[in-house]
Design a protein around this nucleic acid. Sequence first.
DNA 1: GTCGGCTGCGCAATAATCTTTCGTACATGC
DNA 2: GCATGTACGAAAGATTATTGCGCAGCCGAC
Lengths: 166, 166
Amino acid sequence: MVAHRLDEIDRKILAELQADGRMTNVELAKRVGISAPPCLRRVRALEDAGLIRGYHAEVNARELGFEVQVFAMVGLESQAEVELSAFEARCREWPLVRECHMLNGEVDFMLKCVAPDLSSFQSFLTGQLLTTPNVASVKTSLVIRGAKDEPGVPFDVLEERLSRTA
Amino acid sequence: MVAHRLDEIDRKILAELQADGRMTNVELAKRVGISAPPCLRRVRALEDAGLIRGYHAEVNARELGFEVQVFAMVGLESQAEVELSAFEARCREWPLVRECHMLNGEVDFMLKCVAPDLSSFQSFLTGQLLTTPNVASVKTSLVIRGAKDEPGVPFDVLEERLSRTA
DNA sequence: GTCGGCTGCGCAATAATCTTTCGTACATGC
DNA sequence: GCATGTACGAAAGATTATTGCGCAGCCGAC
């Protein structure tokens, strides 16, 4: 990890932009305690270094008509690398699958899916996921309600960790 | 859902801002085919309506020193509402827990966690999660690699769906 | 029909921000 | 001591955000 090459200002920038990605550069500069030009240079550098992958609006899926969220745990027949990659490629094609993570343990993949309603998801499940070659088992769990949803990184933990190292 | 009250321009705006949350308003206006002022008014309206919840920079967790990502499936002793809320509140306190979803089925909660390394996660697991009152069982799965990670909503599905309804 | 009233667009102007340029300060190494 | 590299901050011009205003289209009411 390259976190050591970042000073406190860089980490503050990342934390602020993670919390509010549309913050103006002048506001950001004010918050991290430097003037606008070097602040913008740092942001560009963080983007170029790949530490900032992009910026996204967080939309209200439920209000937009995606009322169903499902975790699907998928087991494959063969775990050969070719098969794993093939399944991942499929997941990237399916719009209802928003996340696909390869896991250790008995389950091979964890999928997070969204759908307009249960029947839409069912038809995806039976018509697409379950009919995919090499898929051995799928266990699904409906999300009843969400209690916390903050993708990203806890910068306070990072700060604490670095201060201990230093 | 209020998606019906949105016209095609609004949905395009949402799709564009989900893909690039820092797009300038003039660029956004150009892409959706209207001039800047009404475009900005629409964005503000979408924000006020809660359809846009916020904007966030997507950071590279691994490069920042969070090399471990874990799904934890938690079962509780009691599923009384008080207990469920209490557990959710705990999850909101724990910085390593980034997501907490209540599920149907045998598992009560699905947690997505990050940690700097395995031992950090282990100490969280044994020192915090497993010692929490009312926690009956925790099954964890390490993320080996990520194949897709696009939180949000597939707007192409939404469009298709609305065109069928209309 | 046509007369308000409503909604939403676009133009124009101003305010704010972004972005580049340039000069300076500080630390490092020779 | 002095060159060198790095990063800051002030200033200025370009771009963008934001507001105010006039206009067109689209209903209901009469």
